[in-house]
Design a protein around this nucleic acid. Structure first.
Lengths: 350, 350
DNA sequence: TCCTGGCGAGAAAACGCTTCCCCAGATCCG
DNA sequence: CGGATCTGGGGAAGCGTTTTCTCGCCAGGA
């Protein structure tokens, strides 16, 4: 209570030094009492230190600890766009898992720009994070690919751990998702309920995740005796607006018998639904739509969207677990996906 | 190239010391060359340092800088739930603005638990962030309120800046949003298109933001000669599922003439739409729905949701700007909201 | 009784930076 | 031409921690 001393408006937080003085012990003892040191410290002393710390409202300076220990408690997370439900769900998982490990998450947005991503990795490396998680795929043919790989490799060499989510381009630890298999299963399921003629709306050429999904979808169709014609594949931005305008493109060109549109992710599918509706058609009835990801909102759109469920939050959790696990720990394996048929694909009588 | 020395698998990142040695200058000169110091350094030397840094792939240790400078480049962001579009949009704004200021954002989720929030503030304080941004309101009558306030105050005393988003409980810097006015305007607009009998679905009692919106809505009704009966106000979780189950409650009880349901935020409204539909009714036609926030997805639900637009991303940007601005900088004022009528409130003939 | 070990407190050396301070050399002015 | 002023490099003292190392003390064994 008696805060003996001048009360200049600006009083810096108590340091460990202050705590030690207050408790009448050495700096070393104070340090040992407050963090889990291997060395025992006399209970009486420890108690005094703890009390002093509480009295001074001491909070250890994480930066100083990092410098002294040579290691931080930080995990860096890179996503394309935080407002995108796909990434925010993953982020939620990372944050939740980090919390149980007493790690702190720092987050940055690449805005789907490879240059920016590289730059961010460089910046974040300065933090010396224990882990770096990169979510969101990048073009397969990306000029900065090599530089990024080199950067990440250097980071790993210095003891960091990199985990990629759903982008196996670089030979780094990866949370693999069965995009291809999921899309293939979806195709089969859709054929199963009667659809025969398909179009696809996907992201820019060379976007790995998108490409895998389209390939898987095509495989599924071919396996069931169908096909996917190249000019029935529309490319646009891998976002809600991309889905909307991709669908518009398709409509302007004329649906020409297309019964179902597969959008390579849910946000695109949602955009497509709106485009269909805005064109005066009824999604589901006039043209069916399916997406991929099972983001939370697709339950609530009308018609509820058929999609392939990815456990997004689990992806984030798993990424962090993978990063923290021993190199020889058992692999958790590929994340399985699951087809979820909803009203946007009511089926066609045959 | 010739990395003279043993190549133990684990090579730590180059330090400033290494760079100085490589460049043949002192530590001081190296430091001055690499960061914007006030002191000039000979161009020849600077060049040598920069080259050496590039050669060694030097990346300054942010923790060490923080310790030495006594200040970090970190901003801490606390949200209730990262996967919630309301918060992820705000987060996107914070991250974007932070990026232009070359700050790094660390993020944590309170999960709407005041205890957890307090705990997180304590933890994050260890980071010595330049700024702490708290989004998401908490119960007005919260036992930990005092402790949180004390904690935040202490943080500010030590030079930190706190900014609250849309929660003016504590007398701290706040990005104020005209929740009340927005809701009032919404009520007037709805009365304007013919609605007379309203119900409200809102969050737990005492949740400030929710309360303001409901109060504003009621004010609007009263001002136009209407009313909002207390038992037409349903309380449930301030989430999508809360909206769904709140609407169920309302339906089970019997709509009893209610023409329009105002949900205190968009995620609740979206849940309500689904509940209505699942009950076999047609939202918009059988019962109108309005929300609040204008999260991205509400354009894409059916019927498109009438709501009050809040510039969510701008809120995040503004919070950071406010935190960074001088105490005497001109206040940007209350964030204005805007009523957006969509198909979920087609209007009623009178 | 003396010596050896173990225990644990405290002094001090790190950790990777920034920045104060000193000082030599260059520049300026009368 | 000599002193005053300026410029900018480098040594070294921090910053708030952790951790090694030293060393005194006490218990136990011969």
């Amino acid at each position: 209570m008696t805060d003996s001393g001048v009360d200049t408006g600006r009083n810096m937080p108590a340091t460990l030094h202050d705590v030690a003085r207050e408790a009448g012990v050495s700096l070393a003892t104070a340090s040992r009492s407050l963090n889990g040191s291997t060395r025992r410290v006399n209970d009486e002393y420890r108690k005094r230190v703890l009390e002093a710390a509480a009295r001074l409202d001491y909070s250890p300076n994480l930066s100083a600890q990092a410098v002294a220990r040579g290691t931080t408690t930080t995990v860096a997370l890179l996503v394309a766009d935080i407002a995108d439900p796909y990434f925010s769900s993953i982020a939620a998982g990372v944050v939740a898992e980090a919390d149980t490990e007493h790690l702190i998450v720092t987050m940055a947005a690449t805005e789907r720009d490879p240059e920016r991503e590289l730059e961010l990795v460089r910046t974040l490396r300065g933090q010396r994070p224990r882990v770096m998680i990169l979510a969101g795929s990048r073009p397969v043919t990306d000029p900065t690919e090599g530089a990024l790989a080199e950067e990440l490799r250097a980071y790993e060499r210095s003891g960091g751990r990199v985990v990629l989510i759903s982008r196996n381009e670089l030979d780094l630890r990866t949370v693999l998702v069965d995009n291809r298999g999921g899309a293939e299963a979806l195709a089969r399921a859709l054929v199963g309920v009667g659809y025969r003629r398909f179009a696809v709306i996907t992201g820019a050429e060379g976007l790995r995740t998108a490409a895998d999904r389209v390939d898987g979808f095509r495989d599924g169709l071919i396996a069931t005796g169908g096909e996917l014609r190249d000019d029935d594949v529309i490319r646009d931005a891998f976002t809600r607006d991309g889905g909307y305008s991709g669908m518009q493109t398709l409509l302007e060109r004329g649906l020409d018998g297309v019964e179902l549109v597969f959008a390579a992710n849910d946000v695109m599918a949602v955009g497509a639904l709106s485009a269909i509706r805005d064109a005066g058609l009824v999604p589901g009835a006039d043209v069916a739509v399916a997406g991929f990801d099972d983001i939370p909102t697709v339950r609530d759109v009308t018609p509820a969207l058929t999609t392939v469920r990815m456990p997004l939050e689990e992806l984030g959790r798993r990424a962090l677990r993978l990063a923290l696990s021993d190199a020889d720990a058992p692999d958790e394996g590929v994340v399985q996906t699951e087809v979820v048929l909803r009203e946007s694909t009511p089926g066609l009588p045959r």
